Computed example of a mutant assay.
Amino acid sequence: MSEAKLNEPFYDFDRDNVMTDIVVEGRAILSVVTREALEDHFGAKGSDDADALIKIYLANRDAIDAVLVAHHEKHPDQQPSAFSGDFD
Rank of each mutant, 00 (worst) to 15 (best):
I54P: 11
D14W: 12
A50V: 00
D88K: 05
K5P: 02
H71Y: 15
R61N: 10
G43A: 07
L6Q: 12
K55E: 15
P76Q: 06
L53K: 07
H72M: 07
P9R: 02
D40T: 01
D62N: 13
F83N: 04
A59R: 14
A44I: 01
G46R: 03
S2L: 06
H75S: 14
P9N: 10
D49L: 02
P9W: 12
A50P: 13
A50F: 10
M1G: 13
D48H: 14
E25V: 03
H72N: 10
D65K: 01
A28E: 12
D12I: 02
A37Y: 07
E73G: 08
E3N: 11
S81C: 13
E36F: 00
P76L: 04
D49R: 09
D40H: 05
T20K: 06
F83T: 01
G26Q: 10
K45I: 04
R15V: 02
V33F: 11
L38T: 00
F42S: 09
A52G: 08
N17W: 08
A70S: 11
A70K: 03
D14V: 15
D51P: 00
K5V: 14
D51W: 06
S84T: 00
V33Q: 09
T20A: 15
F87P: 08
D12Q: 07
V69P: 00
D49A: 05
A82Q: 05
G43P: 10
E36M: 02
A63D: 13
S2C: 00
V32I: 12
D16F: 06
A66V: 09
A44P: 06
F87V: 02
V69F: 02
H71R: 04
H75Y: 15
L58Y: 10
P76K: 03
R35G: 01
H75W: 14
F87G: 08
S2I: 09
F42P: 13
G46N: 05
I56N: 14
V24H: 11
S47R: 11
D88G: 07
K45E: 13
D65Y: 06
D49Q: 12
I64P: 11
S2N: 12
E8K: 08
E73Q: 14
H72I: 10
V24M: 06
A28M: 09
V32M: 08
V33K: 07
D40V: 01
D21C: 05
L58V: 00
Y11A: 01
R61M: 13
I54M: 10
I64A: 13
G26C: 08
L30G: 13
L53F: 14
D21T: 01
V67M: 07
D16N: 09
D88Q: 05
A4M: 05
V23S: 15
S47C: 07
V67R: 01
N17T: 04
Y11Q: 02
V32W: 08
D40F: 01
L53R: 07
V24R: 04
T34G: 00
G43N: 09
L6D: 07
V18A: 15
F13S: 05
A82H: 09
A28T: 06
A82V: 05
D65V: 13
S81L: 10
G26S: 05
V23H: 06
L30C: 11
E39R: 09
R27P: 00
G85M: 03
V18H: 14
L58M: 15
H41R: 01
D86I: 03
S2P: 12
D88W: 03
R27S: 11
G85Q: 03
F42M: 04
K74F: 14
V18D: 15
P80I: 02
G43E: 14
N7M: 13
L30W: 10
Y57D: 05
